[in-house]
Design a protein around this nucleic acid. Structure first.
Lengths: 339, 339
DNA sequence: TTGTAAGCGTTATCAT
DNA sequence: ATGATAACGCTTACAA
């Protein structure tokens, strides 16, 4: 009997509340909407009844009936960069604050992207957000082609696809500002430390820096690629690259595509080679991860406007239109002690 | 007309497929279940029709009808430790592989825990997983009291609540193994570097180490608390603590509650104080985050069995029973160069 | 092995 | 401001 009772209590529906409050089911629903046309008195009565019975609206049923799930899918393909944690924190915080839920998909395995997109659409997510470094742009066309997804947004990466909306930091402007700083400081022989050299992703940061430098100084800076955005690999690659050079040909600056690479580089320079920063070699990163501001690194870097980017996403969520193009937001250059 | 057509295409239901294949709606459902009683021939026919029409089952409707959402809620209250990224990666990977979806909730703000739990139950998640360092155990009782949640699991932390199930690393056994190592290496004056000294969370690692040490050596090791599990704070605290000591009273070992603290400590020791590791002071961590295996740190640490823990969670998901207690899994001691 | 009928708990439409 | 009725797309239980 005891168990039966608790089972009965478990599923209080709007009908139960309606009966208890002596109104229709619809009125109950209205009482829970902020902008419904309902008298204050009725609402109070309904809410009291709901509270008494322990009623809370069922979001699943609501989604089914309204065709709005209030769910955003986040597809993440790289869990090794601590910066992702910052992105996830901001995104979930903002989205959640606006009443949406967050469905997280792991697409570390490239082959998982398509199934994840499908699963997201089967759950009727209002928008799918691609947060990735490695995914192929071709996936976008397939996803849009399927027509199942309501909206698709590329986050923290510019898209070449004209039918998609991307929300990202204005890398171009950022690199311009950083390059100006570097030139002003009088660096002469920079090396650009980049991530994997894939053809699918357009490496804006690298290209912008190389172009600008050539334009301003006339020579092509050397570019070194690390096969993954990974601390240890960066350490290794930098160590090997610099060891191979005679002392007088060492670069005086390592311009790194992100902080993870920069920090690997710093440790290689200091502990691997016994050189000093910025005395012997300057280092500059991108992202402003936590370690960047740590006393041991104190890295000059660039902070992406993550919160603003998350808020832009919410704005898209709320809007009924389907905009496309690249939404560029301005970040902030953080000059610290490594340049 | 064009638009209308695409709109029509958007919502293909099981009924449409049933009609196209000349079977009942239920048979269509059966064709999509792996373990249904349906003839191979019929299934093939149905799947062909479904494929032709572009039909995929609607998970929302399925959840509503079956009262199983195939969704697990992850409540995360700390996004600063990179180890969380590892946990999220494994958890999403395993859960997703078994056909479940992952709902991520940000409970950085303590006050968000209760609403998140409520939101999770409103979406009828099959299980809510608390992945946290800071939440109060009292929340568990409230959550269980509400009776809305089907299951509640504490992840990567032992629970004192007898009604809850927790899945975590056997910290006690881990610390025992590590302490034995430390004793064998001949360390004499250890300092335990712990996180915030709250009364809500029982700091098993600290307690086990302190007890063991006293038992084996007769003296109480000093315990130093860092107000947050945070690199920079650890750096600061360690620097100040060690600077305040005369040279001969310096500890010969820093036994750290986790890697983030350990790495902050290492940088403080080397760069802040100019001492060497393990020459002057040994350091030992916990978690085996990526930086721990990096050449610059090469930290002796302990790896939690995250994958096994994630698999244990799935097993619970699949089981219909509601077990309680602490499920302890064995990790692995990783001896590197800092001890 | 396959089909039928009755839910699941909302929202939408239209009327009052 | 409130109510009646029909969706939403699936599963469950049972019948054939």
């Amino acid at each position: 009997v005891d168990q039966k009772q608790s089972l009965v209590i478990e599923n209080v529906t709007a009908d139960d509340v309606a009966e208890a409050a002596g109104v229709s089911r619809w009125t109950v629903a209205r009482a829970f909407k902020t902008d419904a046309s309902i008298s204050a008195k009725t609402r109070k009565k309904v809410l009291a009844a709901a509270d008494r019975l322990g009623y809370v609206p069922d979001l699943l049923a609501a989604s089914l009936a309204s065709d709005r799930s209030n769910l955003v899918a986040l597809l993440v393909d790289d869990f090794s960069n601590p910066h992702k944690l910052l992105v996830l924190e901001r995104l979930t915080r903002v989205v959640q604050h606006e009443g949406w839920g967050t469905l997280l998909f792991n697409t570390s395995d490239q082959l998982e992207t398509q199934p994840a997109l499908l699963a997201a659409s089967q759950r009727r997510v209002d928008v799918a957000v691609l947060i990735g470094t490695r995914f192929d742009e071709a996936i976008i066309d397939t996803a849009l082609g399927a027509r199942k997804l309501k909206k698709l947004v590329i986050f923290a990466r510019a898209s070449q696809n004209p039918n998609t909306l991307s929300i990202c930091c204005d890398d171009d402007a950022a690199i311009r500002e950083m390059t100006a700083h570097v030139l002003e400081k009088g660096y002469k022989r920079p090396v650009f430390l980049a991530g994997p050299d894939t053809q699918s992703a357009k490496l804006i940061r690298k290209e912008t820096f190389v172009d600008l430098w050539r334009q301003e100084r006339g020579d092509m800076p050397e570019v070194v690629h690390v096969p993954q955005y990974n601390y240890s690999l960066a350490y290794q690659v930098v160590l090997e690259t610099l060891r191979a050079k005679p002392r007088e040909e060492l670069p005086d600056l390592l311009f790194c595509e992100n902080d993870v690479l920069a920090i690997g580089a710093m440790d290689a320079i200091r502990q691997g080679l016994g050189l000093s920063i910025p005395g012997d070699i300057g280092v500059i990163g991108y992202d402003d991860i936590e370690a960047a501001s740590a006393p041991a690194y104190n890295l000059t870097t660039y902070r992406q406007p993550i919160t603003a980017m998350a808020e832009a996403l919410v704005k898209i969520l709320k809007s009924s239109s389907e905009p496309a193009g690249n939404l560029l937001l301005q970040g902030r250059f953080i000059v610290r002690g490594t340049t």
